[in-house]
Amino acid sequence: MRVLLAEDSGVMRKIISRGLHSLWVEEIVEAADGAIALGLFEKENNFDLVLTDWNMPNMNGLDLVKAIRATGSKVPIMMITTEAEKARVVEAIQAGINDYLVKPFDQNMLQEKLDRVLPKAKS
């Protein structure tokens, strides 16, 4: 299982990475902003899941989602963000995310969302 994690906060990247490793993810490729994440996605294009923050410098998470979907990719994408307003959630869903997780969250919430997005990933 390969995950692309786009998150500008180094501390948050560590927290999410630790949570993913403790579940079932073998490899996590980290990006500090959406532009770096898009470059990695276009170069490698073999990710099983993309996790992205919304608010990042250079390219935000919503623009990253749109760019990934513009390639025709069906890779599952989950937005992990503090943006919890209903209009923002709807906007992200319309852009092509598969699920949404609001910060702060705990390990159980992360696992529940991942199980929903990737129900067969652990089998």
Rank of each mutant, 00 (worst) to 15 (best):
R116T: 13
D106A: 08
V90K: 07
G72F: 10
N55M: 12
A37M: 03
M78C: 11
E85Q: 14
K14T: 14
V25W: 09
A32Y: 06
L64A: 07
I28D: 04
G72Y: 09
E85L: 14
I77F: 09
L20H: 11
V29T: 14
E30L: 11
P119L: 07
K43A: 12
V89K: 13
V50A: 02
A31T: 08
L110I: 04
D53E: 03
K43F: 02
E44I: 11
T81M: 06
R2C: 03
I68W: 05
V89C: 03
F105S: 04
M12P: 01
L51D: 11
M79E: 06
T52S: 15
G39W: 01
R116Y: 15
D33L: 01
I16Y: 12
I93L: 03
M59L: 13
K122D: 12
A70I: 05
L4E: 10
P76A: 07
M1I: 08
E42Y: 08
S22Q: 10
P76V: 03
F105M: 08
V90C: 00
L62D: 09
T82Q: 11
P57C: 05
M79K: 09
V75Q: 06
D106R: 03
L51I: 01
L101P: 01
D33C: 03
V11M: 03
I16K: 14
S123M: 12
I97T: 08
R18F: 11
D48A: 12
T52W: 07
I28H: 09
L49V: 06
A6Y: 12
V11G: 02
A121S: 05
F105E: 05
D99N: 12
M79H: 07
T82K: 02
N58W: 15
V117F: 04
G10S: 09
A70N: 14
G19C: 10
R116E: 06
H21V: 00
P119C: 01
E42F: 00
I68Q: 07
E26S: 14
E26N: 12
K14A: 10
M59S: 14
Q94V: 02
G19Q: 10
G34C: 05
E83V: 06
D99K: 01
R13D: 06
E83P: 07
N45K: 15
E85I: 14
